[in-house]
């Protein structure tokens, strides 16, 4: 881990501690909790896509498996939420392993198609296996999480808990990036042939990182179930997998902080746009809510056109440029004085 990352994690932690004092509205706090869940899934996905260079449009399926494992085991079998979450993780490890073995042999578009197919299979099962998943009407009355008897029964508590998990996940991911394993993954991204000629077992590494990123998604799904307390197949459709990929790409695929930025931006943007339309309505400016989607799309398009390396990289570079310019101006002035 480098100094920049320590600063980043410290800054994020501080921000998370402060936010509930500023945002007292439960609805917006809820939005920020969903943001945390997206962040968690995107950290895992970024390890897979940005570092190992393997695409997956199937991570919504792993979120679904985690969520359904938590929901089914706690409501129908009366398991404790923690045991159910653990079982979800174990299930996802097995599923990701057996899905990964055949699909990770594929490259690029073919891998994208295969994982997309997997996502739609899981979605169809969650709709059709009525006896098991409740079908389209879903599962209700999922119990809340509690830590050592301390129930997470308010949005503020769940907010802190979910973001604590995100920060822990981020810490582990950043350590991984700068380790031997992280270098092996980046090497696979750079050149599979060269990586294997240096002793990196590319098949095993690809499967391992696929499984790890699926674990992140699974935990995100379990947390979703225990926060909303009700699940149905709706939020776990194929479009959700696509949205996760979009988040990572918009934020910056080659950087874990980029993935985080993208997840935060795209989770908050729709809320901001609808807030904006309400606000403008107060001034007598009315437009259809469809325009929200239009603006949303236009923003994505502009980011990808002008900041192809992602929003985080773009912001980081422009801030750096401003600092450099300022330094140069200061230097120029002091030299001018002499």
């Amino acid at each position: 881990m480098k100094q920049k990352d320590y600063i980043g994690i410290a800054a994020l932690t501080t921000l998370i501690i402060i936010v509930p004092y500023l945002v007292t509205n439960d609805y917006y706090l809820g939005v920020l909790i969903f943001t945390a869940l997206n962040c968690l899934a995107c950290i895992g996905l970024c390890l897979l896509m940005g570092y190992a260079g393997q695409i997956s449009i199937g991570h919504g399926a792993f979120i679904a498996i985690g969520a359904y494992a938590s929901a089914i085991l706690t409501t129908k079998l009366g398991w404790s939420p923690w045991a159910a979450m653990g079982f979800g993780v174990v299930t996802v490890i097995f599923v990701a392993f057996f899905v990964g073995i055949p699909t990770l042999r594929l490259k690029g578009h073919y891998l994208a198609m295969a994982t997309l197919g997997f996502a739609s299979i899981v979605h169809i099962v969650s709709v059709a296996a009525v006896g098991f998943t409740g079908g389209p009407s879903g599962i209700m009355n999922i119990p809340r999480l509690s830590i050592f008897g301390f129930q997470l029964n308010s949005d503020v508590k769940f907010f802190y808990f979910s973001w604590a998990i995100v920060i822990a996940g981020l810490y582990l991911a950043v350590n991984l990036i700068y380790s031997r394993v992280g270098r092996g993954l980046k090497a696979i991204h750079g050149s599979q042939d060269a990586a294997s000629s240096l002793g990196v077992n590319i098949t095993v590494y690809k499967i391992k990182i696929f499984v790890l990123s699926a674990i992140y998604a699974s935990i995100s799904g379990s947390l979703y179930a225990h926060y909303v307390l009700y699940i149905d197949p709706g939020p776990f459709d194929v479009m959700h997998s696509v949205l996760l990929v979009t988040m990572v790409a918009v934020g910056g695929i080659h950087n874990i902080w980029g993935a985080l930025t993208g997840a935060i931006l795209l989770s908050l943007l729709p809320e901001f746009l609808s807030f904006l339309s309400d606000y403008l309505q107060g001034f007598g400016i009315r437009y259809k809510t469809d325009y929200d989607t239009l603006v949303y799309g236009a923003i994505l398009l502009l980011i990808m056109l002008f900041l192809p390396e992602g929003l985080f990289d773009g912001l980081y570079r422009s801030i750096k440029a401003v600092f450099n310019l300022k330094n140069r101006l200061m230097k120029g002035r002091s030299q001018g004085a002499v």
Partner: peptide, 10 residues
Amino acid sequence: FQNVQVFSNM
């Protein structure tokens, strides 16, 4: 390798 295969992302 004949066509250099450095890891250009590192």
